[in-house]
């Protein structure tokens, strides 16, 4: 298991005051909060910072952690020395009830159950599990409650939304085993992706969340749909955008060109005198309607005029002829030159 340098993670010195630690935490929590931050590893960093704060904000845990010594490096292979925590008792003192950064009021949140690293668990796991087992013991006394809901993201491709598809998703579900320990169980589900689904929509699978307590029903599973970026299309709701390169003469004289669409290749007419960047709409060629009452999206084709390089003498002659013919054309007129 890897040693975690909580001071390094929080960006504070080992002799930082509790106030300094709190300020550092607030700042990092804002920076990496998964709802706000768009940094790729925001969620992992947020959990890491939360874990570091969980230890450093609690004078008891911090003292115990400090006792390991200052010579450990972040990521170094680590095993807790036997009896390292002699004289410390975690789970008391009123510091350890907060879950996920100390602001928690709603108690145990299933999504956060796997938030702590092995390193943390090996050091402070005891008291943590005790409180969990206490909750679990209610199970035997006929306590019933609906299981909590599970929320996850599912990545799909544009093609899945066009035609509908089946996707497998693997979920890590924290489960309390017979001895009261929290273990991550892997669960693989095959989920129907309905035709016409949009980016950001949520699929609810009733009864696929966490198991209920006693005779309580299981919770629901919520899957938030995100699209993988596509190599040529961009998606906005049910509309699809495509950059279509065309030649200057196709733009000037008009032409019939082939256009790829997610539903297959179609012919499209370019009007004579089309400007660079003009947007043409192919109605109903976007993502199909999700329900009978809905409407299908459109495919917008954005014309991109590409000019060929003049390599041969013949090709140069054409450009020279254009120069001489279009004498009055000044693309920089608006710039006053």
């Amino acid at each position: 298991m890897e040693y975690k340098d909580y001071y390094e993670i929080m960006g504070v010195k080992r002799d930082a005051t509790q106030d300094e630690i709190k300020r550092a935490y607030r700042k990092l929590a804002r920076k990496y909060h998964p709802d706000v931050s768009k940094e790729a590893d925001a969620e992992a960093r947020f959990k890491e910072v939360g874990e570091a704060y969980e230890v450093l904000k609690d004078p008891e845990k911090r003292a115990a952690y400090d006792q390991l010594g200052a010579n450990w490096k972040n990521g170094q292979d680590f095993n807790a020395p036997p009896g390292w925590d002699a004289g410390f008792e975690f789970g008391g003192g009123g510091y350890t009830d907060g879950y996920g950064g100390g602001y928690s009021s709603g108690g145990f949140d299933a999504e956060d159950a796997s938030a702590y690293s092995d390193f943390f668990e090996s050091l402070f796991g005891g008291g943590f599990r005790q409180s969990r087992t206490a909750g679990g013991s209610r199970r035997q006394s006929g306590f019933n409650a609906k299981g909590s809901d599970h929320h996850a993201k599912i990545l799909i491709d544009l093609e899945d939304a066009m035609q509908g598809n089946t996707r497998s998703i693997s979920l890590r579900v924290p489960t309390v085993d017979a001895s009261g320990h929290v273990v991550n169980k892997e669960r693989v589900l095959k989920v129907n992706i309905p035709r016409g689904i949009k980016q950001g929509q949520t699929i609810r699978l009733a009864g696929q969340g966490n198991p209920g307590v006693g005779e309580g029903k299981p919770g629901d599973l919520y899957l938030q749909v995100e699209f993988n970026p596509h190599s040529i299309y961009r998606v906005d709701g049910r509309d699809i955008y495509l950059d279509l390169p065309i030649t200057p003469w196709e733009a000037a004289l008009g032409a019939k060109v082939k256009v790829p669409t997610p539903g297959g290749i179609v012919d499209m007419k370019i009007k004579a005198g089309s400007a660079n960047g003009s947007k043409m709409r192919l109605k109903g060629r976007g993502i199909p309607a999700g329900s009978k009452s809905g409407t299908a999206g459109d495919l917008y084709v954005i014309l991109q005029i590409e000019t060929p390089a003049a390599k041969t003498d013949d090709e140069k002659a054409v450009y020279e002829k254009m120069r001489d013919t279009f004498k009055s054309f000044n693309p920089r007129a608006k710039l006053g030159v």
Partner: peptide
């Protein structure tokens, strides 16, 4: 590993 082979269909909320 707990595998489920049934294909699940849900509602779009």
């Amino acid at each position: 590993v707990n595998r489920t082979t049934d294909i699940l269909s849900g509602d779009i909320i």
